[in-house]
Design a protein around this nucleic acid. Structure first.
Lengths: 247, 247
DNA sequence: CCTAACTCCGTATGCCTTACGGAAATCTTG
DNA sequence: CAAGATTTCCGTAAGGCATACGGAGTTAGG
């Protein structure tokens, strides 16, 4: 296990470390970068449950077991994918008032989850510390540097933005995925649900849900509006953070 | 598919609907309730990835394929499990000031994720509307009824609490799971990581991360403290909500 | 008593990861 | 230039998974 950890860390930081490979045997037909990019393409297209080593190999014109000469295994490959996509978005210098800076940080997290929905399906056993993830954490902290938070609070603020945005993005992504790929539209779904629910939910058992659900349904024109929920929550969080700085 | 949806809804509301079973063939050896409870036990002990229909069958003294006479399939069984655990906690009348009420709602979500960590691993395609989930939503709304939110805002507030709490609970549960079951302690992990990271991260590339990480490390005596992060975030959200009501 | 309906389950299909070992390619060393 | 060391690519097989299908046996209704 220790060996795999060490090997994976070396793979993560491969650009910084250079490739200290012995050059004996046959040349590798592709590169680690290509393996990681192919893997990301598979996960983007089919989601993490359908993501398999075989599909990565097929896409590269290799046979299944050859992938294992590039990466130790499935879990480690996913670690490499995570760091790779963390490097996709630019990290521009922060500008403007604090509210705008923090919104930018949250927005970037939100966008990444939508570009690569499989990130939400990853089992985060122990997060790999790669170069792009590290750079981005530094950039996130820079957004709130000097605003008046203590060092400890700075970490907590970024953690909070991550937790909330991941949760909100999950609703959004799940909604989209279900609508697109389950083959059952919202209308069909409700056509089957409604008769059973009407028979089963006594009219007076859910007075508040009924009222609130109707208001939400009218406003959203759907069961929910994940993006709007995200904006609402983020605004409340921003208000709360400003109040912390007013102390 | 329509048939499975209908069948599953009938299973979810089985207590309200009664059992409209034909009584022809051999009696079932167990009940749907027992299947669901056995399934929850398996998932509690082993997590959702290791949760399989065979293990549920073994636990009940049945053979694999017999489970399919009780529930349509794996996904539907998980839907039943979700509603079942949603009914485990009491829904007491709300008391005290708003802050305390909302904290109670968030705390219950937090507790549930810790009692049944597999809830965080569920792929939420389209949520099943069962009796316990419905009751709890009504109870959650009741906590903020009359506080001054619009109907639309009430839905958004509960959604926000759910998103944030799920995200925070995920960190907490993942940390615990990894420490307990990966067989690699935090110390060992860092013993392998540190040398590579020191070699690879130039001293001046991460000035803010370095400072903040040190402060957090000293305070937490670990990489992070998920519960404390949850409290911090919840306090900020509460502040933000109070400010919304002050308008 | 006969038959429809139902439960239980054996079998088979087609996925998945990954351990192991062999054949072939390539560089280093003598 | 030959031999050995090293590495890649990959075939095979083991052991997991969900679930479609159909058969055997059980029970109640007509």
């Amino acid at each position: 296990m220790d060996q795999d950890i060490d090997r994976t860390l070396n793979l993560l930081w491969r650009r910084t470390l250079g490739t200290p490979q012995g050059t004996r045997g046959p040349r590798q037909r592709v590169s680690v970068d290509e393996v990681v990019r192919a893997a990301i393409a598979v996960a983007d297209e089919e989601g993490l449950p359908a993501f398999s080593m075989r599909k990565v190999a097929d896409r590269l014109g290799l046979k299944l077991m050859s992938i294992y000469t590039y990466v130790p295994g499935r879990a480690e490959l996913i670690g490499l994918m995570i760091d790779e996509v963390a490097g996709e978005q630019p990290l521009p210098p922060h500008e403007g008032p604090l509210r705008q800076r923090i919104t930018g940080v949250a927005q970037q997290i939100w966008d990444e989850f939508h570009r690569h929905p499989w990130l939400l399906q990853v089992e985060n056993s122990r997060p790999w510390i790669g170069p792009n993830v590290s750079d981005r954490y530094e950039w996130q902290l820079a957004a709130i540097e000097g605003a008046g938070f203590t060092d400890l609070e700075m970490d907590q603020v970024i953690t909070m933005l991550g937790s909330f945005t991941a949760g909100a993005a999950r609703s959004s992504v799940d909604t989209r995925r279900t609508t697109e790929q389950s083959g059952i539209s919202d209308a069909e779904w409700w056509a089957v649900n409604a008769p059973v629910l009407e028979r089963v939910m006594p009219g007076d058992a859910y007075p508040i849900s009924g009222r609130v659900g109707q208001a939400a349904g009218l406003e959203y024109n759907a069961v929910g509006d994940p993006e709007r929920s995200f904006r609402f929550g983020l605004d409340r969080i921003l208000d709360g953070l400003e109040r912390l700085l007013d102390r």
